[in-house]
């Protein structure tokens, strides 16, 4: 038909329909969790499982307010604080790891040190260790240094866990760039700082956004370290989630689903915002060989 106008890599609404079906199937378990957040306790555990039911907002209310048994009045829970903690800790540590990791990645890519590969390898190794292995010494270290239960302790720890990923990913983006442009800029008298900030960074912005989102996703839900190293004031949402599991009457699926749903919103939003950067902008190197 209109073959000569067909652009490669473009598809129409029919394609949207196909991908929507696939997407919806993939999304179904999440949808189920979100639906559960609107269910009463009996609906959540109905046999057979219910897809249609009368929705209720009770679960969302009990995330932030719980009825006091003695007085009958509702009492605020600390969940608001935990949401703030999660957001603050995750964004700060991923941001820090990205800055520090980008600098290191630039060095590994452009100014190889003696034993460059060894450093990269050691950095990678720190990421491979099952966290359980280092948790005892880290726990002791945090207790001795007073970092336990503080924001800085957990932020630095998460930063450390994000650095290997940031370094390796950002290095791969730097490696894709054509150094000829940088050399040309240097010939024109641009300082090293200018080369870095005006020529290299803008070209890998999409890559940096991607690294940021990846790091955020990996940090957002970290549980084990948060469980052991955060205090009452710095507790994050995943820890609070786990604490709802221990009731005498079994898991309150509705309440848990409500927390999960609310906790999904910020990261979903960030990913959605950076998605364009993430996908459209990833075209490395302006003068590709």
């Amino acid at each position: 038909m209109a073959r000569k106008y067909r652009e490669i890599g473009k598809a129409g609404w029919g394609y949207t329909a196909i991908t929507s079906v696939v997407g919806f199937v993939y999304f179904f378990p999440v949808l189920w969790i979100i639906l559960t957040a609107f269910k009463t306790r009996t609906d959540a555990l109905a046999v057979p499982p219910k897809l249609f039911f009368t929705p209720t907002l009770d679960n969302f209310q009990s995330v932030f307010f719980r009825a006091s048994i003695t007085t009958g009045t509702s009492q605020a829970t600390d969940m608001g604080l935990y949401f703030f903690n999660s957001i603050f800790i995750a964004f700060t540590s991923v941001g820090l790891a990205l800055i520090v990791g980008t600098l290191a990645a630039y060095a590994f890519s452009r100014y190889p040190l003696r034993g460059n590969d060894t450093y990269l390898f050691i950095i990678l190794t720190t990421r491979m260790m099952p966290p359980i292995v280092v948790i005892i010494p880290i726990f002791l270290m945090f207790r001795l240094s007073g970092l336990a239960g503080s924001y800085w302790g957990i932020i630095l720890l998460y930063t450390a866990f994000n650095i290997p990923f940031s370094v390796w990913l950002v290095k791969s983006f730097f490696d894709e760039l054509n150094p000829e442009i940088e050399d040309a800029a240097r010939m024109d008298g641009a300082s090293e700082r200018r080369v870095f900030f005006r020529f290299c960074i803008p070209q890998i912005l999409a890559g940096l956004s991607a690294t940021f989102v990846f790091g955020l996703i990996l940090t957002w839900n970290e549980f084990l370290f948060a469980l052991l190293l955060t205090g009452v004031e710095t507790r994050t949402v995943p820890v609070a989630m786990a604490r709802t599991l221990g009731g005498e009457v079994g898991v309150d699926y509705g309440l848990l689903a409500a927390i999960v749903t609310l906790f999904l919103i910020p990261i979903f939003f960030v990913t959605f915002l950076l998605q364009n950067q993430l996908l459209r902008g990833v075209t490395f190197g302006t003068v590709k060989k």
Partner: peptide, 24 residues
Amino acid sequence: AKEFPLRRIVLMLVLTPMMLSFVS
């Protein structure tokens, strides 16, 4: 990999699972 209408939104359906916590 193709461009199609509403791609951003459909893609989010697929991306969501990894944003959930292991606990949940």
